[in-house]
Simulated assay, not measured.
Amino acid sequence: MIIPWQQIDPATLENVIEAFVLREGTDYGAEERSLTQKVDDVRRQLQSGEAVLVWSELHETVNIMPRGAFRG
């Protein structure tokens, strides 16, 4: 189920995004990016609709994923 990110408390959303970034360990190529920059990137993706915040009832977890990868 997609959770509208706008309905999440800003501090909670910040924590969810930060946990996602730390968990993913995404490779940004030759240029290293700070945690703040990575969090800002994910926030922009949520705001643009490119990424969505998803609740898994099966696993009782929240995740962030590309909109095209979500099969709800």
Rank of each mutant, 00 (worst) to 15 (best):
M1G: 14
V62W: 02
L58Y: 04
S56K: 05
Q47Y: 10
G68S: 08
E24P: 04
L13P: 07
D40T: 12
Q6L: 15
Q37M: 14
G49T: 09
R67A: 01
L35C: 06
Y28S: 03
E60D: 11
I2A: 03
T26C: 07
S48W: 05
E14G: 07
T12E: 10
E14V: 02
R23W: 13
G29V: 01
Q45V: 09
R43V: 10
V39A: 04
L53F: 05
R44G: 08
V21A: 04
V21G: 05
Q7P: 00
D41P: 04
T36N: 13
E57T: 09
V42G: 02
Q37V: 09
M1P: 11
A69V: 00
S34I: 04
W55F: 13
I2N: 03
G29M: 08
N15K: 15
W5R: 04
I64Y: 01
W5C: 05
Y28P: 05
V62I: 10
F70W: 03
D41Y: 13
V52C: 06
T36K: 11
D40K: 07
P66K: 04
T26P: 00
T61P: 00
L35E: 03
Q47V: 12
V39E: 02
F70R: 02
G49S: 10
W55Y: 13
E14L: 11
G72Q: 00
V21D: 04
A19L: 07
W55G: 01
L13Q: 02
G72V: 00
